[in-house]
Design a protein around this nucleic acid. Structure first.
Lengths: 327, 327
DNA sequence: GCGCCGTGTGTCAACGTCAACATATTCGAT
DNA sequence: ATCGAATATGTTGACGTTGACACACGGCGC
């Protein structure tokens, strides 16, 4: 900066004013300074800035390593929005939900240079890790509301599950089986409860849900337990991956999809449309979730006021994996 | 820091020595200082550190937004390794390959606080964007070698494609069709050339490859063009997603996989094993690639010496989507 | 002609840390 | 007893930036 000032024949402070477009600077001076910056390839030093201002213009994201496709998309959206807003994005991976691993992530975070953080970890897993979120640091939660001690952004899981379940009932299926996500997942819980309520509100008895863990393999295992029961004609899997496994199980047993059994997923994986059969699914919008999370965090940072965003909606995408039951 | 020093009755310098475990500090003093740090919840200020040392202990990653699953996994691995090595990870998303978008990413990067960067963008796309990589900043390339002006880390694409092609030939297929990735992808090119060479080295004429773009949908379109040709009994898709689309196309036409046609993918998507049929694929190891990329970058940062890592190997995973042709 | 305001620019200090140097103490070897 | 090395701690200044303040100039109203 000093070099630029010398080159332009002004003081360092004036350079600073030009860079930040703050205060009064004569037009001619501004030009000379800008020229000098160009010539010398000047870039403001962010460390010094941060030191002076106490702001880093960076936000941290904490999420599990090997995360789901949806979370990856959310991360992506967060990165894009942060970048648009002139913020850098620091990623802090958490390798497992073990207590000290998560706590370690927070510790690392405190040393890192961020103004606020977005946590993309299930509430239940956070609770389990017994981490206290450091206060003084603005936090936005994604996919978890954790007692509303912090603003959160979330998908309307219940709406999606209802759409999926109603679709199957409307096709004429007597009831709908459900393959649920991991027990400690808040999202899984809400999808399951919404499925159950939708059935009950139609006066249908909900069968015992099958436990999965989001993985396609767990969907397959659930499918193995369902496929020999002729009464099963409609399955709602709590995510697309498990739906894939369910389809495999039925197909292996010679039961046709959707001829014998209809299957609905949840997520809207981009490849779901190209599966055989193309999968009916509930389309989520992780890109909206990510953008909203950044907006909510920046609102906390700048204004101090807390904005609570509405739940992000979902849509049912009907494809060839669902049909009316053979009568 | 001053508060800690006062609390422990020592100078700031001694606190610094305790924090960095550098120089001589008496055992009793160390303990007192550590106590004080604990009590006051002291965290070193990374901005001041960076300002003083000129090092940020952060690395930047430039990659395309909406990246492939493989790249996401690579990012994940980079994040984990960086975190292990005590480095923060700053993600700079690039929204499209438009010239100024990529250039903008680099500009943003220069203002960001990173010691080096890992570029996870195809060489061809980088070239197209005509970005010059700022010098003075250590760079490691992933999935692209770009004239070896920088260290790079890459998967042995050629080996993988050869494994896939040989597998199909060994099963007795007369020849192997190929659905290739986008024209400007270096990886796609190498997989295609390796496939061609493998066929030719066995004295088999390589059919015209079908153009895809990595998406499942493009695989489906390629499949549509192949499925009516009875001579087609073996297809090697340049990635798993396109393989999914190919399978769909054949299945729709009533041609069985693997009964009538064998299909091999490339990537090793975790769900490939649960597809119907489970997909034979070439397993990549993005986690190794990511870790090696960080190691190579840190080597440049610390030692200044350049390490060139060997190509990361792949393995063929044989599943139910491939079989010998009906004789 | 005087004081005041708006404009343009410079000086100084401080943000938190750590390298370099200075100082003080202890201990063993001569 | 003396010296030097090893150990232990303190003092100072600089990293690059910017907020606070000071200063200088011209124009306007009275």
């Amino acid at each position: 900066m000093e070099d630029v000032a010398r080159e332009a024949g002004v003081s360092g402070q004036t350079v600073s004013r030009v860079v930040n477009a703050r205060g009064y600077v004569g037009a001619a001076t501004r030009e000379r300074v800008e020229d000098a910056m160009q010539r010398l390839g000047y870039r403001p030093n962010s460390a010094a800035r941060a030191l002076r201002s106490g702001r880093f213009r960076a936000i941290g994201v904490i999420m599990f390593s090997f995360s789901s496709y949806g979370n990856q998309r959310t991360l992506d959206a967060i990165a894009v929005r942060a970048s648009q807003m002139g913020y850098a994005l620091t990623l802090i991976p958490v390798e497992s939900s073990a207590r000290d691993t998560v706590a370690g992530a927070f510790r690392r975070l405190e040393e890192h240079a961020v103004d606020g953080i977005i946590i993309v970890i299930e509430a239940h897993q956070l609770d389990e890790a017994e981490v206290e979120i450091p206060d003084g640091l603005p936090v936005v939660l994604v996919d978890s509301n954790r007692g509303a001690t912090h603003p959160f952004v979330d998908t309307d899981q219940a709406q999606g599950a209802r759409l999926a379940t109603e679709h199957l009932l409307d096709l004429g299926h007597k009831t709908v089986w459900h393959v649920t996500g991991p027990a400690k997942s808040y999202s899984a819980e809400r999808r399951r409860e919404s499925w159950r309520q939708t059935l009950e509100s139609r006066g249908v008895v909900a069968p015992e849900p099958l436990q999965g863990d989001w993985s396609a393999e767990s969907g397959y295992r659930a499918g193995l337990r369902l496929r020999d029961d002729e009464a099963v004609t409609a399955v709602f899997a709590a995510n697309d991956q498990m739906a894939i496994g369910v389809v495999r199980a039925f197909r292996e047993a010679g039961r046709d999809i959707p001829g014998d059994v209809s299957v609905v997923g949840f997520d809207g994986l981009p490849d779901a449309a190209q599966l055989w059969p193309p999968l009916t699914t509930v389309q989520q919008h992780p890109e909206k979730v990510g953008a909203l999370a950044v907006d909510a965090l920046l609102a906390e940072l700048d204004g101090g006021e807390r904005i609570q965003t509405p739940l992000v909606g979902t849509e049912l995408v009907v494809r060839a994996s669902t049909a009316s039951p053979r009568s």
